[in-house]
């Protein structure tokens, strides 16, 4: 397994591990994200730093030359293909999120008006509860994380296909 593939595996597993726990918590309590987000980023950085250090120490090429092996045209092609796939996924997530938000907000407004005994509710009075807004933001962020997982997953799949035929 090459250096670039190992790096992709590390990113894939690191993101999956850290952000599965992160989203499991914030989807239950959407307001409890501030400290948790910082912690998730720190854990992610530490995990990747440890892995890349171990990867570098164990890499024959780095031991020999002192530098990481260069990314060649095949590596770049694999990365471009992965970026294209994850870009499509991210685009679909953002568009879906926009459509859901555009239709979801009026539904919430109607629900709120009903809760207030059918009182006339102008758009200026309408307010979405903070927890719902944060949940929507977490969903959008989850889409971004998912696109990243797809990116590294595609890289890993491409290298595996090359190795196994």
């Amino acid at each position: 397994m090459g250096f670039q593939e190992k790096s992709a595996w590390a990113c894939l597993l690191g993101i999956a591990l850290v952000f599965t726990v992160y989203f499991a918590i914030v989807f239950r309590s959407p307001t409890a994200f501030v400290g948790l987000f910082v912690l998730a980023v720190i854990v992610q950085v530490i995990l990747l730093a440890v892995f890349h250090t171990v990867n570098a120490i164990m890499s024959h090429s780095i031991r020999k030359t002192g530098d990481a092996p260069p990314r060649d045209e095949l590596d770049r092609m694999i990365e471009l293909r992965a970026a294209k796939i994850s870009g499509v996924i991210l685009g679909m997530v953002v568009i879906s999120w926009c459509i859901i938000a555009m239709f979801g907000a009026p539904v919430q407004e109607i629900a709120l008006a009903k809760a207030l005994d059918g009182a006339e509710l102008s758009t200026t009075q309408f307010a979405i509860p903070l927890a719902n807004v944060l949940l929507a933001v977490h969903m959008l962020f989850a889409g971004f994380v998912m696109a990243n997982l797809v990116y590294y997953g595609s890289i890993v799949v491409s290298y595996r296909k090359l190795a196994n035929g």
Partner: peptide, 22 residues
């Protein structure tokens, strides 16, 4: 030639066609 060993393996197995430059 400035590539990785993995790319040489892929070339030899005809799983990857190189650029004209390579």
């Amino acid at each position: 030639v400035g590539i990785t060993r993995q790319t040489v393996i892929a070339l030899e197995k005809n799983k990857y066609y190189p650029s004209l430059e390579l």
